[in-house]
């Protein structure tokens, strides 16, 4: 056993754990911070990602003792940090992930969101390729990633006041656009799902009962 002095989510904590334990084990099994996930145990999946001094790091490959003296941020700490910094409502990255469908099963999400948060802190205007590169250490098996890129871009757009790009399946309206009232989250409408797709009349029979025509 070893007594560790860790600074996690802004709080200095003393915690006893076996000396060989990883930061992930200490967070999960000593501190009850189970938001960081164990997906592979060897640095392949990124589900255990935390921020150490603002940099995304794999907590499953970090011996806990080496994290002493550094600022550790877990997914549980993002919202409190946002509020401490004077933010209102949910953290914009977390909010955008929820809204854009960037999470399904949610198991990769804590790591994915922390990687995205670190990117946006470091690079105020990343390109899509930079977003992809920054998230490439976080595996997601559910989404196909496009909705994750859209979430990061939406968080960016909201930070800069720019108009976010509309997803291709909603040609008739931009579901990510802000409502006139500002922060009320609109439900995304399906109006015009098939509008504007350039579907040419395709010979009749398959179209007669299609409601979209």
């Amino acid at each position: 056993m070893r007594v560790l002095n860790l600074t996690v989510n802004g709080d200095a904590t003393e915690v006893a754990a076996p000396a060989h334990w990883t930061l992930l084990e200490v967070l999960r099994y000593r501190m009850g911070l189970t938001g960081s996930k164990q997906g592979c145990d060897k640095g392949d999946c990124g589900a255990c990602t935390v921020l150490i001094d603002g940099e995304p790091q794999l907590s499953c490959l970090t011996v806990a003792a080496l994290a002493e003296g550094h600022e550790i941020t877990t997914i549980e700490g993002l919202l409190p940090a946002h509020l401490r910094a004077g933010g209102e409502g949910p953290d914009p990255v977390q909010e955008a992930f929820d809204r854009c469908g960037a999470l399904q099963c949610g198991f990769c999400q804590p790591g994915m969101i922390l990687s995205a948060r670190a990117l946006l802190s470091e690079n105020p205007a990343p390109t899509r390729d930079e977003i992809k590169a920054a998230l490439s250490g976080n595996l997601c098996r559910c989404t196909g990633y496009t909705q994750i890129y859209q979430a990061v871009e939406l968080a960016l757009a909201e930070a800069t006041g720019a108009e976010p790009a509309s997803p291709s399946w909603a040609p008739g309206e931009n579901p990510w656009a802000k409502t006139p009232e500002g922060n009320a989250r609109p439900a995304v409408g399906a109006a015009g799902l098939t509008e504007g797709t350039g579907v040419a009349p395709s010979g009749g029979d398959s179209r007669t009962n299609g409601k979209a025509h």
Partner: peptide, 21 residues
Amino acid sequence: LSTYVIPTAVDAPDFDTILIE
């Protein structure tokens, strides 16, 4: 997951998705 490789963010294409009802 280092020997059985699934698509990462840099392997995934940009999807252009059209839903028909």
